[in-house]
Every structure is written in structure tokens, then in C-alpha cells.
Simulated scan of single mutants.
Amino acid sequence: MGKDDFRCIECNEKASELHRDYSNGILKITICESCQKPVDKYIEYDPVIILIDAILCKTQAFRHILFNTSLNIHWKLCVFCLLCEAYLRWSLLHGSKQSSDPADIIRYTKEWEFYSMFGLASLELWAFCGGVLCFLWLVVGLLQSRPLELSLLLRGLLLSCYGKVLLIPAVIWEHDYSPLCLGLIKLFVLTSNSQAIRVILNSSRRLSLMAVCVGLLSETCVAQACKKLPWSIQDVLTFD
């Protein structure tokens, strides 16, 4: 990162460095000139503590991850989360039906159904991200004439979808309240998305919630459209 690419996790002011390296391996955390607090206290913290604070949606933890680290696993995390969601949909598609004949074509049908679920999950995710980015571009970029880093927003949205990995244990340890668990996981992911938008834009909670609602509406419309189309992927690959 270059000069003034860092942010103070307390007041969001720009900083040129997070720490100063003296001789003999002595490090001193930089103090923010605006709030007189450490620019980023998390550089001394264990990653587990940072992860816990991120799960709790703490603003400081989100600023540390989004601004003060070079974490570039958002694409890998995105693919992994999509695989988790595709597995959930695939496992609920036919329940526990299994074929006794190992040569039965149903085995191959179910494999292609998993690929179709992955495609549908990907399409809905990009519809969500597209809806959020278009809304913010219109409101923040055009109406408020503020600079908007779409790549940073996309990175923040993908990283804040980490809650989808909870779909796997929700399927493995299924019980009578699984719909409630899935709803809570969805709510947690949307809350993390909203917090990421709020931190990146340094905006009000209302704006970030509106952006998430627009994205959710876009995702729902695409999902319903895929179900209504007579030539949808799910109908083509499902031989029921």
C-alpha cells in the first residue's frame, strides 16, 4: 500500500503508516493525528480475535480488514461460499432419495443438478452485488458527487459473505428448526454486507441498509425469474 492508503480504525482518517520500525526489531504503533489513538491496534492482535470482532460486526475490525490489510482472498471465499450454498440447495432438492442401482442415470442427473444449483447461486449473488453497486453509484456517485471505489465495494461485499459457510453445519446437523437457522444465517450475511458498505463509504446506517435492500430485491427478482422461465436450467437438468 502506498502513502495515505491506510485508515485509522477509530475515526476513519487517512494515515501514512500503521507502525514505525526502529532498530533491533522494535515496533511502535502510529498514533492518529486526529483522534490521538492508535491508528490500528489490531496489528498486534491474534487473527482469531480479529475474526471474532468481525463476526460481531465491529466497525474497527471491518476497517482493519478492508483498509489496513492486503487480504485478497475474496474471490476464493466467494467460490467457497457459492459451493456451500449450492450444496444446501442440492441436498434439499430431492431430500434423501437414493438409487439402488449404481448404474442408474439418476446419479449423473443429481451431479448435473449440483452444477445447476451452483450456477443459480452465482447468478443470484451477482444480481445482489449488481443491485447494490448500481444503487450506490446512482445515490453516492451521481446525486452526492462523491468518489466511489466500485472495486473496493465489490471486495467488501464478497468478503462480508463469509457467513454463508455456516450453511454446511446447518445441513449436517439438521433439525426441526432448520428454516429458522437458515433465515438467521441470511440475516447475518445481510448485516455483514450492510456493515461493510457503511465502513467503506463512511456513511449512515440508513444508506447501507437501503443499498442492501435494493440488492436483496434484485436477487429475489432474478431468483423468481429463473423459476418462471420455461427453459430454466433447473427444469432442463431435472428429470422429474
Rank of each mutant, 00 (worst) to 15 (best):
G2Q: 09
K3S: 09
K3M: 05
D4T: 06
F6L: 04
F6S: 01
R7W: 09
R7Q: 12
E10N: 13
E13A: 12
E13R: 14
K14F: 14
K14S: 14
A15H: 06
S16P: 04
S16Q: 12
L18C: 09
Y22C: 06
Y22Q: 08
N24W: 13
G25D: 12
C32Y: 11
E33L: 15
K37V: 03
I43Q: 07
I43F: 07
E44S: 12
D46N: 12
L51I: 14
I52S: 11
I52D: 10
D53L: 04
A54H: 13
L56P: 01
L56Y: 00
C57Y: 10
K58S: 08
K58M: 11
T59I: 00
Q60A: 12
A61K: 00
F62A: 08
R63L: 01
L66Q: 06
L66V: 01
N68Y: 08
T69K: 00
S70K: 13
S70C: 02
L71M: 11
L71D: 03
N72E: 11
H74K: 07
W75I: 13
V79M: 12
C81W: 02
L83N: 02
C84L: 04
E85L: 10
A86C: 13
L88V: 11
R89D: 13
L92C: 08
H94M: 07
G95N: 04
K97W: 10
Q98C: 04
Q98A: 09
Q98R: 13
S99L: 11
S99P: 10
S100Y: 01
D101E: 10
P102A: 09
I105C: 02
I105P: 14
I105N: 09
R107T: 04
Y108S: 07
T109R: 09
T109I: 10
T109M: 05
K110D: 06
E111W: 03
E113F: 08
G119W: 03
G119R: 00
L120D: 09
S122F: 15
W126G: 01
C134G: 00
C134W: 13
F135P: 05
F135H: 00
W137T: 12
L138E: 03
V140L: 07
V140E: 13
G141V: 15
L142E: 08
L142I: 14
R146Q: 14
L148P: 11
L148Q: 15
S151P: 01
L153P: 00
L157A: 02
L157E: 06
S160N: 05
S160H: 00
S160C: 02
C161R: 14
Y162C: 11
K164H: 14
L166H: 00
L167C: 05
I168M: 06
A170C: 08
W173T: 07
W173S: 08
W173H: 14
H175R: 13
D176H: 11
Y177C: 00
G183C: 10
V189Y: 06
L190F: 14
S194W: 07
R198M: 03
V199H: 09
N202F: 03
N202V: 08
S203P: 01
S204A: 03
R205L: 07
S208R: 06
M210E: 11
M210Q: 13
M210V: 12
A211P: 10
V212D: 02
V212I: 10
C213F: 14
V214P: 12
G215R: 01
L216H: 05
L217C: 15
S218E: 01
E219Q: 07
E219T: 00
E219W: 06
C221R: 01
K228L: 10
I233N: 08
Q234W: 11
T238R: 05
T238D: 05
T238I: 04
D240T: 11
